[in-house]
């Protein structure tokens, strides 16, 4: 089975940028769970890592905003943020243009995805990679779902994108891991940065773990904006990961870390 691993994690820049301001015990357990996820990905035999992220105007702007985009390059640069601010050193992350080409061709069978032969990674991908593949030795296929500039793609289309990614993975002989990044409730880069709606997040993750498609897709953007903030729009990446995996989920870490402006999330899915 070519999709050999699926999971999700949070990606807030504060996770690395404000590392020194967090409660050390909570932070270290969260970092440990992220690194353990990296170990699981390596143990799965993955040869390629598909990262479904929600970027923040690093590459895509309102002049030409794709609902879905996938990278198609042999290497990507990151982080686009000031490395001293993000506390992640500049790095060239390996990609695989040929593998991307094949996956994109397959996704296009059902979802109109844009492709990008140039892509600068922002914290949405760099923060997870910093922990999952600290040696940057696993080629990455970046995917983006526009969760920043409304109008946004409906949640059921994020599900369809996940299913299309799964079919694409299944059509190649390579072992592929997929990680969705972002969320859950948060109000990043506003004066409300650090607010977390923990009950909302736990309900959402219960639905994610249970693979309850109907409940996962039941939120309106107005609901999300009110209860989970503009950062909550990023649940699209978790929904895509659930659709790609198909099975039940398992939580490795789920605790609010306000100084990181997000819930610390590390969770995986059974690929079925």
């Amino acid at each position: 089975m070519p999709l050999v691993y699926a999971g999700v994690c949070s990606h807030g820049p504060g996770i690395t940028a404000r590392s020194d301001q967090a409660d050390p015990d909570t932070r270290d357990r969260f970092y440990g769970a992220l690194r353990a996820m990296g170990d699981e990905i390596r143990a799965s035999g993955a040869e390629l890592l598909v990262v479904v992220a929600a970027e923040h105007f690093a590459n895509f702007f309102m002049n030409n905003m794709p609902a879905f985009a996938m990278g198609m390059a042999d290497a990507y640069e990151g982080p686009i943020e000031d490395p001293d601010w993000l506390k992640i050193a500049p790095v060239k992350v390996p990609g695989d243009a040929e593998a991307s080409h094949s996956l994109i061709s397959s996704v296009l069978e059902s979802v109109d995805v844009a492709y990008a032969e140039e892509w600068k990674f922002d914290h949405g991908i760099m923060v997870p990679l910093h922990f999952l593949t600290p040696a940057y030795d696993l080629p990455v296929v970046p995917c983006n779902i526009n969760c920043q500039g409304p109008p946004l793609t409906p949640l059921y289309r994020a599900w369809a994108f996940g299913e299309a990614l799964r079919s694409a993975c299944d059509s190649t002989p390579r072992n592929i891991a997929l990680v969705g990044t972002g969320g859950i409730s948060h109000w990043p880069a506003t004066p409300d940065s650090g607010k977390i709606n923990e009950p909302w997040d736990r309900t959402f993750m219960d639905r994610w773990v249970a693979q309850d498609k109907e409940a996962l897709l039941s939120y309106s953007d107005a609901d999300i904006y009110r209860d989970a903030g503009q950062g909550g729009f990023e649940i699209r990446t978790y929904i895509a990961a659930a659709a790609a995996a198909g099975g039940m989920g398992k939580i490795a870490f789920l605790e609010p870390i306000p100084i990181f402006a997000t819930m610390g999330v590390v969770a995986s899915k059974a690929v079925t």
Binding site: W187, T190, D192, S193, G194, K195
Partner: peptide, 10 residues
């Protein structure tokens, strides 16, 4: 969409 929602601080 980056309006204030009312928040007591970190």
């Amino acid at each position: 969409v980056y309006k204030l929602s009312g928040y007591e601080g970190v």
